Amino acid sequence: MKILVCIKQVPDMESRFRVSSSGNWLEESDLAFRLNEYDEYAVEQAVQLKEQLGDIPEITVLSIGPDRVGESIRKALAMGCDRGVHIRDPESSRKDPWQIASLIASFAGDKEFDLILTGMQSQDRGSAQVGIMVSEILGYPCASTLVGFSYDNGIISARRELEGGTKAVVRLRTPAVVTCQLGLNVPRYPTLPNIMKAKKKEILSVPVADFSVVDGHATTLRLYQPAKKGGGLVIEGEVNDLADRLVGILKQKTMVLR
């Protein structure tokens, strides 16, 4: 069994975000980067499946981006993936979801992967489209927003979270694509021995020019910082007094009827 996990390196949410001089992306010199949170659930599920099947599957982890994405690939390897593939593309942040999906499909097309896992969405763009588009290009069945996963003899039972908090269970026959989200599992923390082992694992680095990329359908024209708003008001004192003061403030701001 062959498994592919697609990951993305994204800005850490604690970073200082500024719009770049070009106006259509972020100033990366101010950012720290990390493995996309949703992709960690995909990595963990792949490793759990490998453990279930007795180390029979081979897990390949794939990431597209500039040289720095190697750090995130190494983390996935330390979590239990077997080998890494880095498609070198310094302009990956400019590509729309369809272009990224076409790159993944171009790589995976002749590799006969039985299962492809991705995060539900990335924390920077949040399109939630790439995994589903990969399945469309490859012609594989797909289940998205997974919060439950089981595998038995080529059949995947996937529990999906739908809007309104409801759940649905679908079954897919491999080869298939699934997208993973919060609630599916608890990603493991890479131990020091596994971090050391990951340094010896193979990472194949290939230029983006080696793969087919479709023309883009969407272009980011401009990013804007959120408009600054006034600070909050903290009121202190006895509960009865606070209630009266709060009502007075709301009346003053015409948020309640007089």
Rank of each mutant, 00 (worst) to 15 (best):
F149S: 06
G54V: 02
N194E: 15
I7E: 12
P11F: 12
K228I: 12
E14P: 03
R34C: 10
G23T: 08
M120H: 08
V186P: 11
M133C: 08
V43I: 15
V85D: 08
D152F: 08
A46M: 01
A78D: 06
V177C: 04
K229Y: 08
K50W: 01
N240W: 02
L53F: 11
W25Q: 07
R16L: 09
C142Y: 12
Y38W: 00
Y140W: 11
V5T: 02
D55Q: 12
N36S: 05
R258H: 14
T254N: 09
L62H: 15
A243H: 06
G23E: 00
E28A: 14
S122Q: 01
S15Y: 07
L204G: 02
P97V: 05
I59D: 10
L172F: 09
S22F: 06
V214L: 03
G216H: 00
V147I: 14
S106K: 06
G231V: 13
V170K: 05
V214T: 08
R74N: 08
S22P: 07
L257T: 11
K251I: 13
E163M: 06
L233H: 01
V170I: 11
L62R: 01
L233M: 15
R159G: 13
V85I: 02
H86D: 12
M196R: 15
L62N: 07
G231A: 13
V169D: 12
R258A: 14
G248E: 14
F113W: 07
L223C: 05
G84R: 04
K229L: 12
M133R: 06
G231D: 11
I132Y: 11
K201D: 15
A143R: 00
R83S: 05
G231M: 06
L138K: 08
L35S: 05
D12F: 05
Y189H: 14
G230D: 08
L35P: 03
V186T: 10
S21I: 15
F149Q: 15
I116G: 12
F17P: 01
A32K: 05
K199A: 15
E112D: 14
K167M: 09
G165M: 14
R74S: 09
G154T: 08
G109H: 14
E161F: 03
G183I: 00
K2V: 08
F107P: 00
V47K: 02
V130L: 12
Y224K: 01
N185S: 09
E40Q: 06
A101N: 08
Q129H: 10
A105Q: 10
L182W: 07
G70Y: 01
I249F: 13
R125M: 10
L117C: 01
